[in-house]
Nucleic acid binder design. Structure first.
Length: 129
RNA sequence: GCUACAAGCCAGGCUAUCGCUUCUUAUUUAUUUAGGAGGAGGAAAGUCCGGACAGCACAGAGCAAUGCACCGGUGAAUAGCCGGGUCUUGAGAAAUCAGGAACAGAUAGUGCCACAGAAAAUAACUACCCUCCUUCGCCAAGGCUACGGAGGGCAAGGGUGAAAACGUAGGGUAAGAGCCUACGGCUUUUGAUGGUAACAUCAUUUGCGGGUAAACCUUGCAUGCUGAAAUGCCACAUAUACCAUCGCCUGAGAACGGCUCGUUCGAUGAUGGAGGGUAGGCAGCUUGAUUCCGAUUGGUAACUUUCGGAACAGAUAAAUGAUAGCCCACGACAGAAUCCGGCUUACGGCUUGUAGCUUUU
RNA sequence: GGCUUCGUAGCUCAAUUGAAUAGAGCAUCUGACUACGGAUCAGAAGGUUAUAGGUUUGAAUCCUAUCGAGGUCA
């Protein structure tokens, strides 16, 4: 039986080229602390990345903290997206950028990530129809 | 008890659940799953110094640029560290104690020193003194002499200023002056003694023409440049096309990565513009001048010799986390990116020592 | 990871080969003008020159360290 709540290397957005493409041509929307970039692809893969601007957070410790919290919230909630994509036979490239200037609590980040994922699944449904 | 400084140590722990990453064993071999082991710091930071390592260059010469500047030691090396000297600040009656020093040269040259002040640097001006001339005045008719002029003495005094041409005392003189003498201060030469040396002490000798070199500069010493986005290999991909300028051996330019000489190369050529393609993987990549502990050799010390033991991450959009519970001091500063040695800065707790203040006895 | 520039009134800038009260404009405050307000005129206040040391008789300026804000190199 495979694990559910994983976030391994293959599930992260790693290619520099793909990221450049995402910021150039991807769609975007904003949910409270995050600005979400995404692109719907033909490969059936869900790839995710997170980032924080060094202008908003000067200390590397703070940036790491936020990225970890974001990854954690995404990891526990990405299953619904994965299921949807399998049904529709599509892929998705995702990037979350933290835009607030203060560190929020995990609970808040968790809730906002949930909203973002709901919005994403709505976009996927529209794209198909 | 509080505060400051110095030294040393620690950098929350345990349990459960879900996760990340490296290595390894087994299973399967598109690779997945399971087990085991490991997984940020004292500053990982600032990038202020010094190296290792790598590439290019390495016939050489000159210029420039940058850095350093008391002595000795230490170490791979430094602007680090240790010890010493000199100067200096504070405390003290003193011995001494505790700091600080960018501590070569101002007699190689140039520049600058506001205001004030006569003058901020070859000493001029004023003032003073002597001789001569003129003669207002006085007069006992011999002379004396103000002011002024000429020549000479050049040197004390001149209220300022941060700073004014050694200080004090005496002699000397027409008036004066290190002009001379004594004491003191600084300085130059030579010698002796002590010390590896800086230097110290003593003797001898030469002087006493400000400050500023964190102004230019001079002297001595050192330095080739670049920096893991270095570099090597594999894979993939295209554009020997277009425009401008120069040039095709009477030579554009390139290399010697600051410049010049000089040397070598040099024609489907060079530079610039605009544009096209690729930005995947492996090595470099983590065990090395390594760090720590114990004993030991040498040394005042920094450090070091030998032996034994222990420890040491390796990511690549970038790994150490999240949630819940318990305990305590309720957790500060803060996240490796080629690797080491130092310095600097940020900061929680505990222990020890020193100093100060306060309270009680 | 490397290199490099800057920091002056609330704001935008001067003064940068060291020389004494650090200056200008806008904004602020007070007064005049007006029935009131604006504009205008007159005046005032506002600075530990980012911070801490040092050199110098004297530092915004020179030097060192720190803090902060940019820029740039594939």
């Amino acid at each position: 039986m495979p694990k559910q709540f994983t976030l391994g290397k293959s599930e992260r957005l790693k290619s520099r080229k793909a990221i450049d493409e995402l910021f150039k041509n991807g769609k975007r929307f904003t949910v409270s602390p995050f600005r979400v970039f995404f692109v719907i692809t033909k490969q059936t893969e869900l790839q995710f990345g997170a980032g924080v601007s060094s202008k908003n957070f000067k200390k590397a410790v703070d940036r790491n903290k936020i990225k970890r919290l974001t990854r954690e919230a995404y990891r526990l909630q990405k299953n619904s997206l994965q299921k949807l994509l399998k049904e529709k036979e599509k892929g998705l490239n995702l990037f979350f950028i933290y835009t607030e200037k203060e560190i929020k609590e995990y609970q808040h980040i968790y809730l906002q990530t949930e909203k973002a994922i709901k919005k994403l699944s709505a976009f996927i449904n529209e794209d198909i129809s």
